[in-house]
Structures are given as structure tokens and as C-alpha cells.
Design a protein around this nucleic acid. Structure first.
Lengths: 208, 208, 208, 208
DNA sequence: GATGAATGAGTTTTCATTCAT
DNA sequence: CATGAATGAAAACTCATTCAT
């Protein structure tokens, strides 16, 4: 189904000039992705927007997918940076503070480049890519799990690993849907509060 | 970006023979979607798999998208049927029972044809379609909201409308992620329990 | 180049009902030709507009071209009728009267259904058909030639046969161009006068 | 009816190689147009005859029509060149000389590539194209009008502008018909004489 | 005869990718 | 290294025509 093709750079750009080149191409890909969507994101168009010859694109990127993957990676890095700042303060937080922190972190992540985020989520149809997105996106899971483990006494019956996974999937699911169906809500305090409540309640655990 | 093309049938199949034809074509589309993904789902391939001439496909379907939309609609109908059975019992349920019901309903929906569900979620990149999917998918929201409204006293501070939206987005988000990253979990009791706990806790509401 | 396919009716419609049918189809073809042009004039569209099944169309017309040819023939008949009335009075006319008559005749012919006339001239690309158009269109040439032969003494040096041909081609050329480039002129007296002058002058003949 | 699609080149061929390419394609289009007519002139056939990949055709030509338009333009240029030579001598001509010049000019134009000329006239059914053809074709009208204006005293009652238009339409009509119905006449001196007579007579003006 | 569902060869056009310059 | 002309497989879609009912 998903034929597996290479998505890594053909060669690491070593010199200054080639680094710039790769950068320009990735930025152009982003721009095209935003303006024309995934379907409209043709390699020739990217080259044109980058002001670079199509040959130069293929010098570094083995195929079209690798371009998009690279855009995703860049985006992830930014997300991760945005979240890390928040999550660094997690360790000594109370449950309420932790929830607040996590929500702010994920909201901030979604605010980095919401339109790009949305395009990447919706329009990038390749399975492999989507999975990769999830994996990298969850690179901070361990931080959350760690916190849960050191606060197990205050928590309900869920396993820290599972709870982390469920929590992040849930919050991310809500945010993803907000992005598509209710973009305005991203800036509303009420959304943050609902999500905090969701987290606190779930973690504190209501025994049935 | 998302050029809007018609997605309704060219003409309603009236005779027996044409109804069968449309049915065969939709089934073939499903099969191709499953085996080759959205990108591999070409009109010619669909015709071939359906054992029907390409012209016959275009007799009823104005374009490729309309094929996929039709598959989605069929799937929705099945989902909705699967959920409705469960949700019919909602009205007099306690909070715990309601949570259980909702989770079973959504789990069942995801079990109807999980691989198709996944492909439709992941591989159908067209915005319009995705939104339509959400809308139809949420046709049962009112039932949940209704329940919430009649049990407001047992609930936390969230508005019923908002709570429904958040809840469904959250559970759906988790299930969607399960589908992609942990397909095995669909059959595990633990997942259901976590989700029930999530729902009950959120609704009962933990005041900070 | 122009593959020669049959353009005559499959069978003469004998019964009243079939005559009506053929008539309806031809009228529908005309309508489609006018509204959508030659390219948009598909057999299925014609059948639809005629409110008749496509099978019925092929019952009488062996192929698409034959439809258009039939429209042309009908149009010719009308033209011819329109002209004949005028030309019947030709025999005893003076040169000036004859010119006037000829011009009125051809103008009237072009006024019968100018838009259809134009479409037939411009949009019907088939050589065979065009030639047939010319031939039938010139069915009245003999009348003109006859007049010329009985008034040879008043005329310049041109051969009656050649003069007729040239004259008709010239006037028709002007009118065809008027139809395309200056449709408004069709109703202007000045055009008629210019053409009369052209005819009289040419026939009276200016010896160099 | 006449959907308006772009007919200009996608990009100007700059390098030697691409200029040749465009040239080869246009020539191939001409050849196909001549051999198979407009209907048979498919882009794939053109590419094949040009010995070029279909992709290369679409590199420069946005669609099929633009190919034909380009052929027309080339033809016009040749016509115009052929006529200009003759018409350059018009200014000091007597009426008889002017008529001769005009006829020679138009005859020469029709002799440049009579079969192509005929195909372009007959087989190019698109309205826009036909009008454009007329306009470009009449680029020399002003020269004729200018001559008429400086020789008004020798002329009959017609307005120079109108007279030019009528004259050219008439002669062109005759020649067009010759092309289709009597191709042999193109080389006959008698045709030229008739046309000269037509022109002189009309311009000198026979008052009714 | 009439119907209209079904056909499928044939069109236009795109776009990832290569490779000669 | 960079260029961008050239490639061509493959996609979406049309429409004249047939033929089973």
C-alpha cells in the first residue's frame, strides 16, 4: 500500500552554500503547501518558488515525499522547542499546575503555525509520514510519564504510560479538531480551561 | 486550493440494474481504497476492479471525488446505525452507564471496518470531504447533549454543548490514534475502561 | 482526410409518427447547435433535448454528421424558398432591378436565421458538408445565369456562367463576413446599396 | 459556447534549442492539420509527428488550441509579407493599376499555402480564432483605404472605409470559394481579370 | 419499434524524475 | 555542481455508437 521510498536527504549539505540551498527549498515547499495544498505542491512549483532549478532540488531530495517530510521535521522541531520550554517546569508542579502546563504547551504548539499544522495533518496523506509525525510529536511523552510516576500517589488507577498516551491523544485530538472545525477557539481561554479540567479529572481518576 | 466540484450522483439510478451498478462501483472503490490507498484509487482501476467499463462509472459519478464521498457516506451510515443502537438506551442511564454506552458506541463504530475507517481518516485529504465526515460523524451529538442537559445536576461546570463537543473530539481523537498507532488495542478491555474513566471524570468535573 | 461516411437517413420515415420523430430530432439538433456550438453538439445531448432516447436517434440517423447535414438541408430549403420568391420576378427586370432583386434575395436569405446560418458556416468543419452547402446554396445560380444570357447586350465582357459564379461568391462572401464581423449591418440600407452598386458595376463592366 | 482558454505560449523559448523545438512542433501541427484535418489534429499525433514527447509540447503550449492559433499566426505572417510587397507600390497607382495590385496581392496570399489556407478557413471552427483571423488578415485594410482617400475624385459615391471593407470581403469571399470549389482557378489569368474588373467597376461606381 | 444502460477507444493534460549541457 | 529541457507513464474524463431488454 504505502510503497516505501527513501525520505532522507541524498547527502548532508556540508558547505555553507548548500545548507542555504536546502533551507530555501524547504521554505519554498512550506509556502507552496500553504498556498496550494498538498495536491498543488508539485516539485516543479517548489523549484520555481524557491527560485532554484528543479535539478538542484533533486540534488538533495531524492523525491517529492522527502520534501514534505523535511517540512514536517522542521515544524516538529519548532513545536518541540515551544513545548519544551513549558515542560521544563513540569517536575515540581502540582497536578493542577501540571495540567495547566501541558495544555499551555500543546496549545502553544498548535499556535506556532496553525495553518501549516492543519495542512500537515489533513493534507499529507502518506501513512508513513503520519506515523512519523505522531512519533516525533510524542517525543515529550517521557517527560509527562516521568511526572506521572513521581506523583503516582495523587493519581487514579491508570498506568502512567497508558495515561500519558491517552491524555496526549485526547488533547491532541481535540486540538486537531479545533484546528479544522473551530479555528477561532484556539485563542479562547475557555478551551484551555476545559482541557485542564479534562486532564485533572482524568488523572485524579474517578473510580467507577 | 480546494476546487469545489460536484460530488452528487449525476442521476439517481432508478432501475434495478443501475442500482446494482452503482453498488458494485462503490464496493469496488472501497476495495481499491483499502488495497491501494487514496493515491492508488484511480477511476480506471475502480472500473477494472468493478468489472465495469470506465464509461459506466462516469455515467453516474461525475468525478473521482464523488466516488470516495459515496464510500464515506456508506460508511457513515453503517457507523451511525452501529452507534444508534447503543445510544437509544442512553436516556435513563446513570453517568457511569452513559459513559459506558458512549464508549461502546464509539468503539463499535470504529470496529465496523477499521481498516476502511483508517484509510478514510488518513488518506482522504480533501478538506471539504473531511469536514463533511466530521459533520455526519457528529450527527449523534444532539443525543449526547440531550442526556447531559437532563443530568446537569450531577455534572461539573462545563456547558452541555461544549462538553459534548470536547468529549467526542477527545474520544474520537484517542480512537483515531489507536487505529493508526495501536490497532491491537481496539479489542482490549483496558482501552474501554480508560475512556470511560476519562468521560466520567471529565463530566463529573474536578474543580481545581 | 475527410473520411466519407453516410449522411443520408437510414430509412425514409414513412409513418406519421416517425416523420414527427425525425422532425423533433432535427429541431433539437438545431437548438443545441445554436446554444452550444458544434463542439457541444453531442448526440446524447441532442437526444436529451429532443426528449427522445439516443437509440431512437440512431434509428434514423446513421451518425452524428448526418444530423448536422439534415439541419443544413432544412436551412437550405428555407433559404431557397426565401430567395425563390424574389428571383421569380427576375426575368423581365432591367439591370438595376435585377441587382436589387438579387441583393434583396440574398439578404433575405441571410436574415432567415442569421445565428444558425453563422454557426453552420463557421462551426461546421466538415469539408463534404461545406461543399454540399455550397452546391445547394447555389441552386438558384441557373436563374441568374439565365437572366444574364437574355441580357447579354447590356453587359460587359464577362461570360454569364463565370459572372454568375463570381457575383454570387462575392456577395455571399460579403454577407458571410457581415454575419461574423458586423452583424448589425444586416439591417442597414447602406449595405444593400453598396452591394447593388457592386453588382451593377461589375455586370455593366468597366473596360480598362 | 466558446470557452476562453489561453492561447499564448507558456513561456517564450529563449535558448536556441527551445526555439527550434517550438518551430518543430508548429511545423508538425501544420503537417497534421493538412493531412488529417482539424478533428484529426490531436496533441499526441502532433507530438508523434514532431518526433517529440507530448510533455515537450505542453512545456510551451498550454493546450491544443494554442497550437492551431500559432499555426495561424505563422501563416498570417507569411500572407502579410506576401501582400506587403505588392501593396508597397500602391500609392502612386492609377485605379487600374491599384486594382491589379490588390488582386495580385490577394491571389499571391492565397497561393502561399493554399491547402493550409483552406484548412484554416474551413476547419478551424472556433469563433475567437476566426475573428482573430479576420482581424489580422485585414491588417492591410488601412493601406487600401489610404489609397482610396487620395484618389477620391476618380471614385464613385462609396465611402473609402466602407468601400475597402466591401471590396476586401468580396474578393476574399470569391477567393475563399475558389479555394474550396475551384482550386484550379487560382492559377488562371481569367480569375484575376474578373476580379480586377469587379474592383475597378465598383470603385469607379455605377450610379443606379 | 423504442429505450437507455453500457461500452471503451481515444482525448487532453499533468508532473515526478532524468540527464545532456 | 547547477541547470532546465525533455521525458512519458499515467490520470481523469468524453462521447459516438451498440445492443440487450
Amino acid at each position: 500500500m504505502a510503497s516505501h521510498r527513501p525520505v532522507t536527504l541524498r547527502k548532508e549539505p556540508s558547505q555553507r552554500r548548500s545548507k542555504d540551498l536546502v533551507d530555501i527549498i524547504v521554505k519554498a515547499t512550506t509556502r507552496v503547501l500553504l498556498k496550494e495544498g498538498y495536491e498543488g505542491c508539485t516539485t516543479n512549483r517548489v523549484a520555481e518558488v524557491a527560485g532554484v532549478s528543479i535539478g538542484s532540488v533533486y540534488q538533495y531530495f531524492p523525491n517529492k515525499e522527502s520534501l514534505v517530510v523535511r517540512v514536517m521535521e522542521r515544524h516538529q522541531e519548532k513545536l518541540f522547542a515551544a513545548m519544551s520550554e513549558h515542560l521544563a517546569t513540569l517536575q515540581d508542579a502540582t497536578l493542577e499546575q501540571a495540567a495547566k502546563t501541558l495544555v499551555r504547551a500543546m496549545l502553544d504548539a498548535h499556535r506556532v503555525e496553525p495553518r501549516l499544522h492543519r495542512v500537515l495533518r489533513e493534507q499529507v496523506p502518506r501513512i508513513g509520514a503520519l506515523k512519523a509525525l505522531h512519533e516525533r510529536y510524542s517525543a515529550y511523552e517521557p517527560m509527562v510519564t516521568a511526572w506521572l510516576e513521581t506523583h503516582r500517589d495523587q493519581l487514579g488507577p491508570s498506568e502512567p504510560g497508558v495515561a500519558t498516551w491517552v491524555l496526549i491523544a485526547a488533547v491532541d485530538g481535540v486540538l486537531g479538531r479545533v484546528l479544522v472545525d473551530r479555528p477561532g477557539w484556539l485563542e479562547q481561554e475557555q478551551l484551555a480551561q476545559e482541557l485542564e479540567r479534562l486532564i485533572v479529572a482524568y488523572l485524579r481518576g474517578a473510580r467507577a
